[in-house]
Design a protein around this nucleic acid. Structure first.
Length: 593
RNA sequence: UGCUCGAUGGUGUAAUGGUAGCACAAACGACUCUGACUCGUUUUGUCUAGGUUCGAGUCCUAGUCGGGCAGCCA
C-alpha cells in the first residue's frame, strides 16, 4: 500500500448533501450503477474551480464503486479545439492519479451509441469502458446522430417546432423575467411541415440563424428557460471532432441531458447557475418517454478562492496582455499552472474536500489552500540548504583549503530520518536578511558581536563587517566555534538563532523564481479593473546559491529550502544539469519585521 | 417591480427538533540546530421580528440582505 492510499484510507469519507442523495439512491437501488460525469467544453484550460467538480464526481464514483465519465461537451463548433481535449485529459489524469484512476470512465475508441430495446422500447446507449489504450473520452459530438433522431421524435410528438424568427426577434418574443413572452408565429406548424423543414435545415438549405428548432413548452413561464428554448441552431462550420457532416448543432440544454441519459449517468452534478435549467433538463428527458432510469441534475456552489481570478475570460486577458507567461504560468489558478508551481494533486484534493459542498456562494480564504499545501509538503519534501540572496561570510579560523565535514538531516518529519554530508568551508554565503548591522528588537539572527548557529554546522561569532567605498556591506568576518558541532564537546551550547548557509566554493548558482499572489485584494473580480490591483511582486527572479546536490535535481522534484519555503524543479524553465526552481509556497512566517 | 435559490465566529463548514463543534485565520505561551513543524491557551457566531414546541440554528409566517435568471455560449 502506498503512502497515498494509506492516508486516503485513513481520512474520513466526506459527507455533503449530494453524497446523502446518492447514498439514498444506492439504498433504494434506483440505478444499476452510480455513474457521474465531468463534462468540460474543450475551449480552455482547467482551473482549480474545475478541480472541485472533478474531486466531487470522481469521489462519489470511488465511494460508490461507480465510474465518472470524462465527456467533452462539444456542441459549439465555433469555440472548440483538440488542443484543449489534450490538455484537459492530461490535467484530469494528473488530478486523479494514484487515487481514482480506476474510476475514470472512457469508451471504446470510436464507439457511438448503439440501439437496444429496453422494456419493449427502443433505446440508445453507450456505456463506459476501462480507461486503457483502446479507449478514449466520451464526446457529446459522438451523439449528434442520436440527438438528431431524438429531435425528430420530439417533432413527431408535437413537442418541438421549426421557428423562422431571427435571433433578434426570438429575443423580443421571449419577454423578460418579469414579463411573459409571446408565442412565435411559427409555433403551430404541422408535424409534417416541421419534419420537412428540420430535414432541410439539416441538409444545409438555410443560412446560419435563418431558422431554429425549438421546444414547444410555455412562452409565459416565469422560468425563462422554459419559454420555447432553442434545441438546434444552424452553423455552417465543420466540427473539430465530428468533421463536416453537420450544419445544425444542438444547444447545451438539449444535448446535455440526453448525453447523460445515453451514457447511463445517474447523477449529473453542475454549478448553481444551472438551477433554472433543471426544469428544462427534466422536460426534455420526460418528453421522450425513455425506458431507462433518468439521470437527475443536482447543483452545488462553485469554488472561489480569494486573491485570484477564475473565469476563463479573465484568465485569457491575463495571458493575452502578458501579465503572465501563458496558461500554465505558476501564478495562475489553472491546473497546469498549479502543477508547475509544485502543488500536488493530493494537496489540492485535501483542500477541496475540506471546503465542502454546499449551495452557498462563498469566498474561500486562499490561506486555507496554502495551509493544505504546506501541510503536505512538510511531510514529503526533502530539506536542502539554499541561500536566495547571498551575503559572503568569512570564517577566519578555517584555512582556505580546509573542508569541515558536517551532516544534515534530509527530513526531520520522517520516522527514520536519513542524512547527507554538507561541507563547511572558510567562505560561505548566508542570507542577506540574516545579518543586521542595526538589529531590530528581538532579532535572533547575526549582528555585530553576536553569535548564531550555522544549521548542521557550528556556532559562529561576528567579529567584523567589511564595507565597500559606498558603505554597502560586502562581507562579514566571523570566528567558527568548531567544538559546537554535533558530536563535539560543546555541541549543546544554545544560541537564540540558527541560520542556513552554503559553502561559497562548494555550491552552485541557480535561477530561483519566487512566486506570490497575483493580486493585492481578496476579490479582484469585484474591481472595476482587476489590472489595477495586480501584485507587482508576484514574480521575483533571483540567482541563488544551492547545495551542490541540487544541481542534479529533476523536474517535478519538491524540496524545502530550509527556513525559506518549498520549491520545485520547473519542467519548462530548466535545462539538463541546470535546474530552475519555482517557489511553491513560502514557509509560514510569524516573524514579520 | 416577476420567478428562484440562499443566509451559523474574520473565512469556510458541521449539528437532519435535544450540550452550537471542526478547520483556516488572529492573539498569547511552550518547545525548537528551520522565528518552520508540533503542543497548549484565548478571542469571535446561528440576519431580524413574530409563531409552533417542554425544547428551534433546524419547523411555520413576514421582513431584511445577498446570489442567479431575458446567448442561436456552456
Amino acid at each position: 500500500m502506498t503512502a497515498e492510499s494509506a492516508s486516503s484510507a485513513a481520512a474520513p469519507a466526506p459527507t455533503d448533501f449530494i453524497r446523502d442523495i446518492v447514498a439514498q439512491h444506492v439504498a433504494e437501488k434506483r440505478y444499476p450503477k452510480i455513474v457521474t460525469r465531468f463534462p468540460p467544453e474543450p475551449n480552455g484550460y482547467l482551473h482549480i474551480g474545475h478541480a472541485k467538480s472533478i474531486f466531487l464526481n470522481f469521489g462519489i464514483a470511488l465511494e460508490q464503486g461507480g465510474v465518472c465519465n470524462l465527456r467533452f461537451d462539444d456542441t459549439n463548433p465555433a469555440k472548440e479545439d483538440v488542443a484543449y481535449v489534450e490538455s484537459i485529459t492530461a490535467d484530469i489524469r494528473w488530478l486523479i492519479a494514484g487515487w481514482a484512476d480506476h474510476c475514470l470512465g472512457f469508451k471504446p475508441k470510436g464507439a457511438h451509441p448503439s440501439a437496444q430495446t429496453v422494456n419493449g422500447k427502443p433505446d440508445l446507449y453507450l456505456g463506459p469502458a476501462p480507461a486503457n489504450d483502446a479507449a478514449e473520452a466520451f464526446y457529446a459530438s459522438d451523439y449528434f446522430d442520436a440527438l438528431h433522431a431524438y429531435a425528430i421524435e420530439l417533432i413527431k410528438r408535437g413537442k418541438a417546432y421549426v421557428c423562422d424568427l431571427s435571433p433578434k426577434e426570438t429575443e423580443e418574443y421571449r419577454g423578460a423575467p418579469d414579463q411573459p413572452g409571446k408565442d412565435s408565429p411559427f409555433r403551430n406548424r404541422t408535424i409534417s411541415d416541421n419534419l420537412d423543414l428540420f430535414t432541410r435545415m439539416t441538409a444545409g438549405e438555410f443560412p446560419d440563424g435563418a431558422r431554429s428548432l425549438r421546444a414547444k413548452i410555455d412562452m409565459t413561464s416565469p422560468n425563462m428557460w422554459l419559454r420555447d428554448p432553442l434545441l438546434y441552431r444552424i452553423r455552417h462550420i465543420p466540427h473539430y471532432h465530428a468533421g463536416d457532416k453537420w450544419c445544425v448543432y444542438p444547444l447545451y440544454d438539449y444535448a446535455h441531458c440526453l448525453s447523460d441519459y445515453i451514457e447511463g449517468i445517474s447523477h449529473s452534478l453542475c454549478s448553481l447557475e444551472f438551477v433554472p435549467h433543471r426544469a428544462l433538463y427534466d422536460w426534455v428527458l420526460e418528453a421522450l418517454d425513455l425506458p431507462r432510469a433518468l439521470p437527475r441534475q443536482y447543483e452545488f456552489a462553485k469554488l472561489l478562492p480569494s486573491y485570484t481570478l477564475l473565469s476563463k475570460r479573465n484568465i485569457i486577458r491575463l495571458v493575452n496582455e502578458k501579465v503572465v507567461n501563458g496558461w500554465d504560468d505558476p501564478r495562475l489558478p489553472t491546473i497546469a499552472g498549479l502543477r508547475r508551481r509544485g502543488i500536488t494533486a493530493s494537496a489540492l484534493r485535501k483542500f477541496v474536500i475540506g471546503v465542502g459542498v454546499t449551495t452557498y456562494n462563498s469566498l474561500i480564504d486562499i490561506a486555507v489552500f496554502e495551509h493544505a499545501v504546506r501541510e503536505e509538503l512538510n511531510t514529503t519534501a526533502a530539506r536542502r540548504l539554499a541561500v536566495l540572496r547571498p551575503l559572503k561570510l568569512i570564517l577566519t579560523n578555517i584555512a582556505p583549503d580546509e573542508t569541515v565535514a558536517c551532516t544534515a538531516t534530509n527530513n526531520p518529519q520522517d520516522e527514520q530520518p536519513t542524512t547527507r554530508p554538507v561541507a563547511l568551508t572558510r567562505e560561505v554565503f548566508i542570507e542577506t536578511d540574516d545579518f543586521a548591522e542595526v538589529p531590530p528588537p528581538k532579532y535572533f539572527r547575526l549582528k555585530p558581536g553576536g553569535e548564531v548557529r550555522l544549521k548542521y554546522a557550528c556556532i559562529i561569532k561576528c567579529d567584523e563587517i567589511v564595507k565597500d567605498a559606498s558603505g554597502a556591506i560586502i562581507e562579514i568576518r566571523c570566528t567558527a566555534q568548531l567544538d559546537t558541532r554535533s558530536g563535539q564537546p560543546n555541541a549543546d551550547k544554545k544560541v537564540k538563532g540558527t541560520i542556513h548557509w552554503v559553502s561559497a566554493t562548494q555550491s552552485v548558482a541557480a535561477e530561483v523564481r519566487l512566486y506570490d499572489r497575483l493580486f493585492t485584494v481578496p476579490e479582484p473580480g469585484n474591481e472595476e479593473d482587476f489590472m489595477k490591483v495586480l501584485n507587482p511582486h508576484s514574480l521575483e527572479i533571483l540567482t541563488a546559491r544551492l547545495e551542490p546536490s541540487l544541481a542534479g535535481a529533476s523536474a517535478g522534484e519538491c524540496f524545502q529550502f530550509e527556513r525559506t519555503g518549498y520549491f520545485t524543479v520547473d519542467a519548462k524553465d530548466s535545462t539538463a544539469g541546470k535546474p530552475g526552481f519555482n517557489r511553491t509556497i513560502s514557509l509560514k512566517d510569524t516573524w514579520t519585521k
